[in-house]
Design a protein around this nucleic acid. Sequence first.
DNA 1: TTCAAGATTTCCT
DNA 2: GGAAATCTTGAAA
Length: 210
Amino acid sequence: LHRPFFARDARSLAIDLIGRRLHSSTQGVNTAGVIVETEAYLGVIDRAAHTFGGRRTPRNASMWGPPGHAYVYFTYGLHHCVNIVAGSPGEPVAVLIRALEPVEGLDVMRRRRSVRLRRAGSLADTLLCSGPARLCEALGIDRSLDGVDLCGQGPLWIEAGGVDRPCAGSLRRGPRVGVGYAGAWAQEPLRFAASGNPHVSRPPPLQPLA
DNA sequence: TTCAAGATTTCCT
DNA sequence: GGAAATCTTGAAA
């Protein structure tokens, strides 16, 4: 997809990313999945965002850059999470990709995930990409992809064309995960998911989009 | 200079 | 249900 698609407010982008295919080409292998869960992070005003209050560090630098780029951060000392930068240049807002329904390169995903999940034989498909750090591991995404352009010929992109939305019209929303420290912002319904999709990261306290 | 907590996941009890 | 894995950041000392 092209730049204009990403150059808008994060909440709107988070909703329209559901049903789109995220592709990666890393380590010489292609993988892809349908985005089934996202969260919007609204920047300097959003206490849950890494850029709350105007915070600008080496880690979150790409969130301050132009839209349509990746913001990949490392957390808890061992996990990666990938965001898609939204808004306009200098407006540090982004959409966290929380879960995918795997559609391409499942064998590769299984292998990558099995490094940590030793019981390769019992690795269900719903464990491949059902969480922000899980999908990064499955797609081979790490800090080396931080800041890459999703609109060019890079290792990450969103497929143009059809919205593969098996849950069209049944999008759900609810509070974001793991942001209890964010006060009133923790309650904001900025998490979105395809209703009933088994690859969504956790049982949703989610409501219809309305 | 130290310390605690985090946009998480896995493994063990 | 709870702890461990251990990088990054901001606030306390």
